[in-house]
Nucleic acid binder design. Structure first.
Lengths: 207, 207
DNA sequence: CAAATACGAAACGCAATAGTTCTGTATTTG
DNA sequence: CAAATACAGAACTATTGCGTTTCGTATTTG
C-alpha cells in the first residue's frame, strides 16, 4: 500500500528517513484508538507524530492508504506461528490462536483493534481491503488448527465448518464492537470449552 | 429524537404534513442500504424523497438525528411480540426470535440492517445511541426466551449466560458485517441446533 | 562545493456538504 | 380575506479537512 517503492532507487539527495514511517503509523493507530475514526485527520496525525504533512504524503497517497498500512502494522498475525505451540491438544491450540489473534493480553491493543474494525466501515476501499483481510485471517487461523483434528475419518459439512470457524471471532468482535468490553483469556476459554469443543466432539461422535 | 414535538401546538398556519416523515426516513434507509453511509448526504435524501431540505431540517436538527430515527423505523422489534409464538418449545422460540430480530426472511431489510450497523461506527453519538440500543434489544430478546427455561432449578453463571445470549446475534452480525453474506432461517437453525441447544442441555444436565 | 532530495512547519487552494435562507405557492385558522 | 405556517426547489454561507505548495534548513552523493 505504500507508494513508490519501486522508484526509490534515486541515488542523489537526502534519502527517505525510514524511521518516520513507524512514527507516523503509530500516531495513526493511537489517534484511532483514542478518539475514533472521526478525529483521525491527517493534520492531527502530523501534529502527533511531529512530522510535516508532506512527509506523510510522500509515503502514502491518501488517508485511506495510511489507515490500511496502520492496520496491517497492528496485526499480530506475523508472529503468530512463532507464538503458537503446535505441540498441544486441540483445546490449547484453539485458545492460544484466539488469544493471539485478538490480543487478549493487551487491552490497549484491543482498543486499537476495535477501532480498526469500526474504521473499516468508513469507506468502500477500507471495507474491501480491511474487512476481507481480517476475515480471511480469522478464518485461516481457525482452519489451520481445526482441519487436522477433523480429518481423521470424520467429516463436517461446509455449513457446520463455517459455524465452527466463525464462533470465536464472531463473539469476540461482537463483544468489542457492540459493548466495548474487553476480551480476556478466560473469555476465550469459555468460548472454546462451552461451545467449540462440545460441537466438535458431538459432530465427530455422531458419524 | 425528532425535534420540537412539544412545540407543535400552534393552531394557525399550514400544519406539518406528517406523511413527509415516513417518505424521508424511507429514503434515508434506502440510500444507506444502496450506497452506504458515505453517500448519505442530506441533499441526496431530499432529492430521493422529493422534498426540500428545509422540510427535513424542520423535523430533525442534524443528519445524525435523522439516521437515528431512520434506524429505529427499521427496527423489527415493535411487532416482535405479535409475531412470536410463545406456545412452543425453547428451540422454536429461539429460532423465531433470531429470525425476527435479524429479518431472515427479507434480504433487502438485511442489507439495511447491516448498513445501519456499519453506520453506527461513523460518529460518537450514533455509536452510543444505536449500538447500545441494538445490543440491549438483542439481549432482551434472547433473555426473555432463555430465562424461563433455565429457572427450573438450574442455574447458569453470569458468564455462561452472557455467552449463550450473545452467540446468535454475534454470529449473525459478524456474518453480515464481515462477509456481506445473507443470513437465512436455515443459518439460524444451525446456530440454535449446533450451538445453543447443546450448550443449554449440557449445562442443565451437569448440575 | 553544487545538485538533488528529505525534513518540519506553515500557508494555501479547493471540493464536499451541513445547515440556512429565499422564492413563489399551497394549506389552514380566525 | 388575512395571518401564519408548510411545501418543493434553489441559492447561499460557512466549515471542514484533504492534498499541494512553499520556505528555510538538513543530509547525501558526486
Amino acid at each position: 500500500m505504500e507508494k513508490g517503492k519501486e522508484e526509490q532507487e534515486s541515488k542523489r539527495g537526502r534519502p527517505l528517513d525510514l524511521s518516520r514511517n513507524k512514527v507516523i503509523l503509530t500516531a495513526t493507530l493511537e489517534l484511532l484508538a483514542e478518539r475514533g475514526f472521526d478525529a483521525l485527520t491527517i493534520d492531527a496525525v502530523a501534529a502527533k507524530a511531529k512530522v510535516g504533512k508532506a512527509t506523510i504524503y510522500r509515503r502514502w497517497s491518501s488517508k485511506t492508504d495510511l489507515v490500511i498500512d496502520a492496520a496491517s502494522l497492528m496485526s499480530p498475525f506475523l508472529k503468530m506461528e512463532e507464538s503458537l505451540n503446535r505441540n498441544q491438544g486441540l483445546r490449547g491450540q484453539l485458545i492460544d490462536m484466539l488469544s493471539i489473534i485478538f490480543q487478549c493480553d493487551d487491552e490497549k491493543a484491543q482498543t486499537m483493534l476495535t477501532a480498526i474494525y469500526n474504521a473499516a466501515s468508513a469507506n468502500e476501499k477500507l471495507d474491501k481491503e480491511l474487512k476481507h483481510e481480517f476475515y480471511r485471517r480469522h478464518r485461516e487461523g481457525m482452519e489451520s488448527i481445526i482441519r487436522p483434528f477433523i480429518k481423521k475419518g470424520h467429516t463436517l459439512t461446509e455449513e457446520e465448518f463455517d459455524l465452527l470457524a466463525d464462533i470465536g471471532p464472531a463473539l469476540i468482535t461482537y463483544r468489542g464492537v457492540f459493548t466495548g468490553k474487553p476480551f480476556d483469556r478466560s473469555y476465550v476459554e469459555r468460548i472454546v470449552d462451552l461451545l467449540m469443543m462440545p460441537m466438535i466432539e458431538s459432530v465427530i461422535g455422531s458419524r
